[in-house]
């Protein structure tokens, strides 16, 4: 009896250890990546100087490693694609929530979720073969299809499923009696959805926006194929530019020495940028939660 008890006890301890190890693994992975990026990137930035690294000239053979133009391009692409994606996705979610024949909701939702299953290289291919030539021949004033608009269009389709499914879930989790209460006070169905339900689902929608922005900043393959790739400061939507992700991917297999370290440093900047995005998101949603609690308290 005693022996069996001891066996169970050791087994439990071993299993606890294994689970702890699993949990520690992801923390360890994050730590390793952070250490790798900062330990390689920061000394490099220090060595070439801040003004060089955050300058606008990227020309490897003359030792100019300025990534400012790529940083700006990344922000433009992420901002524009999130803007377009959120506008489209939010209205899609609202339509699916209230203003769509009930029969059509499941297939449309299923199809939008399917978008998330398409590999990013296929989005890139689609952008390169359909969107870029279309922009070049029919839209762009200078006859250049590559650039911020092409990348943003492709990305806005890519982030649709994130926005639609998270906002729809947020809308669905708002108690139904909010809607009915608004109707009882004389609001129309549209008014109650836009003025009552949507504000009540705000934190979920915000989560959708930040998550999709994170994806837009980090997306590489689809962007590289439609962005053009010239490391210059963006001045137009139809101009070959380069994002930070594209910069890393274009050179990673070919470059060595200082040029390769410059890519790691670019990665460090990208990493910090993504981190800031995430932190600001959790601060935003944290404030949201506290706000909600306060209202509940005053309500009670």
């Amino acid at each position: 009896m005693n022996q069996a008890y001891r066996f169970i006890k050791t087994r439990d301890a071993v299993m606890r250890g294994i689970f702890l190890l699993c949990a520690a693994f992801s923390v360890l992975a994050l730590g390793c990546i952070t250490l790798f990026l900062l330990a390689n990137g920061l000394p490099f930035i220090g060595r070439v100087g801040l003004t060089n690294f955050f300058g606008t000239t990227w020309h490897l053979s003359s030792g100019a490693y300025g990534i400012l133009s790529m940083f700006v391009a990344s922000i433009y692409v992420a901002g524009l694609s999130t803007g377009m994606g959120v506008a489209l996705g939010l209205f899609t979610a609202i339509a699916l929530y209230k203003f769509c024949p009930k029969l059509a909701v499941p297939p449309i939702r299923q199809l939008i979720n399917l978008l998330a299953a398409i590999p990013s290289v296929i989005y890139g291919l689609f952008g390169m073969i359909i969107i870029v030539p279309f922009l070049r021949d029919h839209v762009s004033p200078g006859g250049v299809g590559y650039g911020i608009l092409a990348a943003s269009l492709v990305l806005s389709i890519m982030i649709l499923p994130t926005i639609v499914s998270i906002s729809l879930d947020a809308l669905n989790s708002v108690p139904r009696n909010y809607y009915e209460g608004a109707l009882a006070l004389g609001a129309t169905s549209e008014q109650s959805v836009f003025r009552v339900m949507l504000p009540a689902a705000k934190s979920g929608v915000l989560a959708a926006i930040v998550l999709s922005m994170g994806r837009a900043v980090g997306e590489t393959m689809a962007v590289i194929m439609v962005i053009g790739g010239s490391p210059v400061m963006p001045t137009s939507l139809f101009q070959s530019v380069r994002t930070m992700t594209a910069n890393i991917a274009m050179g990673a297999t070919e470059l060595s020495g200082d040029s390769a370290t410059a890519l790691v440093a670019t990665g460090a900047v990208l990493f910090v940028f993504a981190l800031l995005l995430n932190v600001s998101f959790s601060m935003l949603s944290g404030g949201e939660e506290r706000g909600k609690k306060r209202t509940q308290k005053t309500g009670a």
Binding site: H59, S62, V144, Y146, I224, G228, G229, S230, V232, Q239, S240, R242, A249, M250
Partner: peptide, 11 residues
Amino acid sequence: KPDPAKIIIQT
């Protein structure tokens, strides 16, 4: 020498 600004890069 650097590429001209309007270059389109294919990898």
